[in-house]
Design a protein around this nucleic acid. Structure first.
Lengths: 234, 234
DNA sequence: AAGAAACCTTGATTTTGATCAAGGTTTCAA
DNA sequence: TTGAAACCTTGATCAAAATCAAGGTTTCTT
């Protein structure tokens, strides 16, 4: 959690457009409509380690990642950090605060220099009424997220650490797997947090998977999947 | 998983109305609008143990609980059962399949005699366009669910089993706690599954909490919370 | 009301993965 | 470019909770 903590608001006029035309929730609209939305969108940049928001902030904006990526994490009741997900360009956050008038439960931190677009609650609500198809897109996104989060939760309780790690690698590979080489998008520490274990255990389990000839570590962040079927099965 | 497996479709005309006027996603509309929705809604009843749907079913209906309750669970990659949540009257399920043209990932089983209302994808989409406020309600519900699921997932990785049990009891009590007696809505087996442990451990941990004078077991399903603050803290 | 089935509890044992510790490596900033 | 900080790996130990086992209880069915 390196953070220099002052949210520098660089309102850089140019990237609004990219933002709107980039994201799935808007880019199905026609050009004029996107232009209209551009008007209401605020852009903001963050350095690596800066917080976009923190738990307890009350929020009335939807934040859409334009460039870079955000680490969404929470601190548990007992103070430990848990990586919830990583947001990449086109993905958004802030929906809870936005639709429920609540405060953020999560922290959002730039993992690298990042720019985001923000749209206020009232502007968004106007848009949702005017263009109901936006609602459908957001519903699609949120329902997918519910599913993803429930899948993850189910794995915590039903799979061993080794299986969770293996499934994570398999997920990275994805269904449209040309090459069978995956690049870890997280540090081992964050990966450990995401799959609910410690860095030490990740290190050991990767070694085990390698000894079982299921994977081959190419570099610190590149892993070749040798046997996807048995990796999933374990 | 006791299941007699034939979904008996009792289309019982009377309860449609209750269903529509009961649920948060519709009951903010005015009477005529609810009447219109009633037209499109199908009612269906299930005996205890019957499945409303199963993983792999492709779904094009949103299912809203009218009476009784549904156990939503999934089978993990390795075949173990995980209780995801319990749906009570007014709550709905099926959103993933509905908005994403995917198959169900979960099983939905009646925990007791239950009746549900179902609305098809196309009817719902018509309604969403006609009455955008319904979208807002569903967005509200889904975003709350994302949050809930992420909270639950974070607890699995950051809290001990004892803490998760304690937090579960505290959640049951809720903020508007008149009495400090909670009634477990689940069997110990399902409770164990929900909080990610075994029935044996639930049994032992409840005993421990009692020995710490944090709770008092009144009957098999009634528990008096003696010290909520320390229960949450642990 | 009897029997079966599922559920719950308690005990003994085992396993998994966390924690503690220390050395090695990469990354970053001055 | 050199030091500091963060990160990663491996080893040794320990603790939490799963598993195995068996008896007791409740619940459902007939």
């Amino acid at each position: 959690m390196t953070e220099s903590d002052q949210n520098q608001k660089h309102t850089c006029g140019l990237s609004h457009k990219g933002c709107v035309s980039l994201v799935p929730i808007f880019n199905h609209l026609d050009v004029q409509q996107m232009d209209e939305i551009m008007e209401t969108v605020q852009s903001q940049s963050f350095e690596k380690g800066e917080l976009v928001y923190r738990a307890g902030d009350k929020s009335d904006v939807l934040t859409i990642v334009n460039k870079g990526s955000l680490r969404i994490y929470r601190l548990s009741e007992s103070g430990k950090e848990q990586l919830v997900r990583v947001l990449r360009p086109g993905e958004f956050t802030g929906e809870l605060a936005l639709f429920n008038e609540k405060v953020h439960e999560n922290y959002a931190e730039a993992m690298e220099p990042a720019s985001v677009c923000q749209i206020t609650r009232s502007d968004l609500q106007t848009l949702l009424v005017k263009y109901p198809s936006i609602s459908l897109k957001i519903l699609q996104e949120l329902s997918a997220r519910v599913d993803q989060s429930e899948t993850q939760a189910a794995r915590f309780t039903t799979e061993s650490t080794e299986q969770r790690l293996a499934l994570y690698l398999a997920d990275l590979l994805g269904p449209g797997s040309e090459s069978n080489i995956v690049t870890l998008p997280l540090t081992k520490k964050d990966l450990a947090s995401y799959i609910g274990t410690t860095p030490e255990t990740v290190s050991r389990k990767l070694k085990e998977l390698e000894e079982l000839n299921l994977i081959k570590r190419l570099s610190s962040s590149k892993i070749k999947i040798l046997d996807e079927d048995n990796l999933i099965f374990l």
